[in-house]
Design a protein around this nucleic acid. Structure first.
Length: 272
DNA sequence: TGACCCCTGGCC
DNA sequence: GGCCAGGGGTCA
């Protein structure tokens, strides 16, 4: 999926699109995107509602509508919202919001790993899935001391720990990989073994990597392009076998850590 | 804490 | 035809 920068972009886009007018019709396919009862609530509660706010917490989108109607949307791996000027066939469209004026917003998700839930808008921020999230780098900032406290609790690989949404909300496989490279930390290092200085470097690297991604033009955001990105914008992610862009002498290795493909330069990122 | 599973599509 | 994929949930 989309990680924090891509979900933030989705939030900004939805904010813009939903300002065009109230929902006049809501349709939903019988897919597991909706958990029990969610599909019926979606089609019944959304019509007539006007958006008041779009929040992003980590990789979770929270849409607030009037009359206390709320949506929680997680894009999973391949979920995205697309806007079409009129109704018509859109591949993998599982939910639709037709707006006054004829525009239709489609939630498309080929792999069906995403989810949409209907809740009271006033209850969105206290949902268990939201409360379980750690600090959000964009909203709360990354406090090195707090990050160190959380990483210090586990001997898991630091790469795996960074993917834990209770540690930092919104960081995913790509940006964890890139930040560890920027900080010169081996992804398999035990999280609790990092020094104060290393965690400070990691916090700064996470900040920088996410800021760079947020500043990237929309059309270059990886998850938006149809067949992957045209030019891989990352330094080590997806570059197995290439020369290290920093030292030029190491070769990028791509081991699986914590069940996900990582990438690092063994010369720049010592196992310690 | 790691293995496995959920799905489909794109690429080699 | 097999392998891989940015998500997370569950189970032992």
């Amino acid at each position: 999926m989309p990680e924090l920068p891509e979900v933030e972009h989705a939030a900004r886009t939805l904010r813009e699109w939903l300002a065009e007018g109230p929902v006049v019709r809501a349709e939903a396919g019988a897919t597991r995107i909706f958990r029990e009862g969610g599909r019926r609530l979606f089609t019944q509660r959304l019509p007539g509602r006007r958006l008041s706010q779009v929040e992003r917490r980590g990789k979770i989108l929270l849409l607030h509508f009037d009359d206390d109607v709320g949506l929680l949307c997680h894009l999973g791996m391949t979920g995205k919202w697309v806007r079409r000027p009129a109704s018509g066939a859109v591949p993998h469209s599982h939910a639709r919001l037709a707006l006054a004026g004829g525009v239709v917003l489609h939630y498309c998700d080929p792999r069906l790993f995403g989810r949409i839930e209907v809740h009271a808008a006033s209850a969105l921020s206290t949902l268990p899935a939201v409360r379980a999230l750690g600090p959000d780098p964009l909203i709360d900032g990354i406090d090195p001391a707090a990050l160190r406290a959380r990483l210090g609790k586990t001997r898991r690989a630091v790469k795996a720990a960074l993917l834990d949404q209770a540690v930092l909300a919104g960081v995913g496989n790509i940006y964890a990989t890139e930040a560890l490279f920027a900080a010169g930390i081996h992804p398999a290092r035990a999280a609790s073994s990092l020094s104060k200085r290393q965690v400070e470097r990691l916090a700064a690297s996470l900040d920088a990597v996410l800021a760079t991604a947020l500043a990237r033009p929309v059309e270059e955001m990886a998850y938006l392009s149809e067949g992957g990105w045209v030019d891989n914008p990352f330094l080590v992610y997806g570059r197995e076998g290439e020369a290290c862009p920093r030292c030029r002498r190491g070769v990028i290795e791509a081991p699986v850590i914590g069940g996900r493909t990582s990438a690092f330069c063994a010369r720049c990122q010592k196992a310690g």
